[in-house]
Design a protein around this nucleic acid. Structure first.
Lengths: 348, 348
DNA sequence: CAGGTTATACTCATTTGGAGTATTATGGGT
DNA sequence: ACCCATAATACTCCAAATGAGTATAACCTG
């Protein structure tokens, strides 16, 4: 138990310790601001979409973002929910923290008189129902920002035609320039990230792929941040639409996270309406992961895992035999340690 | 491409946007400080240990922590590595961000004139070799802070004797008081978290368990933070040694993360020395997860996954037949999409 | 009511994973 | 030198999980 006096003493101790550890540091730091950014994801008409704020700026869309004020909100997440609701009239259900960035010169404003921003990325999942009440902003397919992630019509053309050759060229010209922290030779990293030359495509490596393209200077943001001469590149969406600040990186992190998470937690149901057919569920999983699932086995998987239960109703006009409707069995949480849609890909 | 003028314009836009979204917020916020906290983990003599700073304070040990200064360090991680090295003379290998907390009244200092602290937790892994060069701080078994996580000698006594009855009692007296965000009834949460009444123990739920004990007021930090009357509890380590601030929560997050991660990424080798026997490897995995592995199957798993290769040498004086030495095959990273020690528990 | 279409059920071969038995190579005592 | 406790390693067995089909059922359209 701690008295107020003790409390205060502790508080001083904190300060001394923290300053003590930074004796070589400058003390006239500009104040730091906390920025919250949300990648709000839904699946609409079998397409994975993210909520973006259209901007007149020519740096592209941004994710909804705002400042966190410690005096107004008890926790980061409460702050996030509050201003998202305020801005877009969209109540968030599932929310999860992604990552905190504070890179200087990457997303912070270079003018030192401006406050330094530490930005905390969040992932939120919602469903088409709730999405309808949304006011500001636009739902945009996330493949507009990451066209190479879209395997719905087979291997994306951009991969072999643009990305692979350009990355390899870059790797050769910059041989040995790879950071020491990167233990893998650049060519191998490229191969692994993009599943080239027989390596398997790992749909979870969204962030790694974006970072690689960034390093290679292929995404618009890299040039922007480098402030290189305007001549080198025409502004182009060839490698996906750009976004403001480091928002495309945050979105990449978000996609990586959802793709990984639906495999071991039943978060996929955050994206579904209350009742759904198994095929609708499959389509939603495929929208997130890529369309590689075997229909019959998917049914078996979901049913035997006890993730769903039939409502008794059916959905007609499916084009064929009517489909039974199901709902999420919230009780799985009580039975299984880590229930998720543990899909593995088919070969074909 | 962006001119400097554009850059500046963008910078203003940022400011307006961010202020715009916070119109109802107070603007005299105290400046915010960024605190970095590191849970530096190793395995020494088959025990999982964490580096703590001994403190004269009666709030217990703390994790190494320091302030992040955006002007001195390019990124958060660079800042972290820099002061850890400075303070402990320990070079960090594997480092991974855990979570960012900014809860008011929980780890922040309550006096508003003190700066608000946003604390970012990191996990770092190192091995006994490197650990020797360490200067300040002490290696302490993490089970001192979480005795109920220690299943090395069967089900921990504290679980059935102390935790289960007290939690259930708490759940009954506080029926219906559970937060709306928690959809599960409290009793069910307790059951799931601690594997009671037939539920399976999930070694990854370290954070959930700690949070539950915190909510129930059983861990020392809860009383400290609540500033309740000193009479209710004698200061006691019954539910694990306390730590300063929210460091025990950060450590819980770290343990959860390592326990999950070794299953799908080969991070276990960060904790090993260069050469090791398969049994040493198993002991290390067990130190992290709990000792539930079947020796023969563990070998099969590790070898068939191609995670290791024999060095050709053997280790004698094992007490029996000499054991072959192995080293980590870094090439697995090039072959398998997500290699890790995918252990599942045995029944017995 | 035929034919197209989708849902659902069922089969089969293979792989994976848990559990146990058998064999081999040391070191320590006698 | 030999016995044996001990640990390492090899091998077997069976059951469950998984990938990939084929077969059947129930709707809609014309």
């Amino acid at each position: 138990m701690m008295s107020d006096a003790n409390m205060r003493r502790r508080s001083r101790a904190v300060h001394e310790r923290m300053v003590g550890t930074t004796k070589d540091m400058r003390h006239d730091d500009p104040s730091v601001e906390i920025g919250l950014n949300a990648a709000i994801v839904a699946v609409i008409d079998d397409a994975p979409v993210v909520l973006v704020i259209n901007d007149e700026s020519n740096d592209g869309d941004s994710l909804p973002f705002g400042r966190f004020s410690p005096l107004d909100h008890q926790t980061l997440e409460i702050g996030l929910r509050s201003w998202v609701e305020e801005q877009t009239n969209l109540g968030l259900g599932y929310v999860e923290q992604l990552y905190t960035f504070a890179d200087r010169g990457r997303h912070a404003v270079p003018d030192l008189k401006d406050p330094h921003v530490v930005s905390i990325g969040y992932l939120a999942l919602t469903n088409a129902d709730k999405a309808e009440t949304m006011q500001r902003g636009t739902w945009r397919s996330w493949y507009q920002f990451f066209p190479w992630e879209d395997w719905r019509k087979g291997t994306p053309k951009i991969l072999e035609q643009e990305i692979a050759p350009r990355l390899k060229q870059w790797a050769e010209t910059h041989a040995g320039h790879s950071k020491p922290s990167q233990s893998l030779p650049t060519l191998e990293r490229i191969r692994m990230c993009f599943g080239l030359d027989g390596a398997t495509w790992d749909e979870e490596k969204v962030l790694e792929r974006y970072e690689l393209l960034y390093e290679a200077g292929l995404v618009e943001e890299a040039n922007r941040d480098e402030r290189e001469a305007a001549s080198q590149w025409e502004r182009s969406d060839r490698f996906g639409k750009q976004m403001q600040f480091d928002h495309r990186r945050i979105l990449a992190t978000a996609i990586s996270r959802v793709r990984a998470k639906i495999k071991y937690r039943p978060v996929i149901f955050e994206l579904m309406q209350e009742e759904f057919t198994l095929f609708e569920l499959q389509k939603t999983v495929e929208a997130i992961l890529g369309p590689h699932l075997h229909k019959q086995n998917f049914r078996r998987l979901v049913e035997s895992a006890g993730l769903v239960e039939p409502t008794g109703e059916v959905r007609t006009r499916t084009g064929g035999r009517p489909a039974k409707l199901y709902r999420f069995r919230r009780n799985v949480l009580l039975e299984r340690p880590a229930p998720g849609v543990r899909v593995k890909h088919t070969r074909s």
